[in-house]
Simulated scan of single mutants.
Amino acid sequence: MVVEDDENLRLAVRMELARAGLTVAEAGDIAGADEILAGGGFDCVVFDRMLPDGDAIDYVHRRRQEGWAVPVLFLTARDSIADLVAGFEHGGDDYLVKPFATAEMTARVMTLSRRAGSGRPSVLRHDDLVVDSARRQVRRDGVLLSLTAKEFAVLEHLMARPGVAVSRTDLIEHCWDSSTDPMSNVVDVVIRRLRAKLGEPEILHTVRGRGYRIGGDPQ
């Protein structure tokens, strides 16, 4: 679904997504989007942030608190770090700054749509670690942990494959955008921060030569 008040841009986005084989609904404001979304069945929603009846991040934040789990891509001309962080903290899954290449937008939507169609349960559990994807909350032994959007994405991806080593390449493909250098240390930095926040006993392990794994014996 595309929610954008600029009719020309909305049409361009809809046509590009349709060419990629997606069925696209559209709305020009939050109220119209809410009415259509009530029918369910969506794999991804593309929201312009500033709409005639409000900021879309407030709507998405409220819906996330209600348990709504459809992936969201924000489109916006607001490109400050604070704006990007706010988008993720209010429940966005991805963020694209205007002007943007429609091919990149389509690639991001396809990635989010595949994630939605994976059949992954909304609550993932392993021992005393619980990841609630709908509410974007993580608890260990009942204690609520404060994670960044990227830390949450990496942990969620690992928790969906308990006991399986996930490669750095796989993590970058699913948790970062296509411009990320696979040779950079971004994964190592997030893993290190996650380990510190998850605490003891250690549950996030490094598997030499293969990647990272939730659960199982350390190697």
Rank of each mutant, 00 (worst) to 15 (best):
S184Y: 07
T23P: 01
P52W: 09
A33G: 05
R136T: 10
D43Q: 11
V70G: 04
R64H: 13
D55Y: 06
K98P: 00
I214W: 08
C44N: 03
D128V: 13
M15F: 02
F88Y: 15
K150D: 07
V24C: 00
D29I: 10
S178V: 14
A33F: 03
D132R: 09
A160I: 06
V138S: 02
A56M: 03
T106C: 03
E66P: 04
V189E: 12
M50L: 15
K98I: 00
H205V: 09
A69H: 13
E200S: 11
F152K: 01
H126N: 14
A160T: 13
L198H: 11
P99Y: 08
H61I: 03
R210V: 10
I81D: 14
G117A: 10
D188P: 02
A27F: 05
H126R: 15
K197P: 01
V97H: 03
G163Q: 09
M105A: 00
G40D: 14
E200N: 07
P52Y: 09
D94T: 08
L22A: 06
R114A: 08
S178Q: 12
D177E: 12
R208F: 14
D48M: 01
L158G: 02
G91S: 08
L75E: 00
D141H: 09
D177W: 08
V109K: 00
A153H: 11
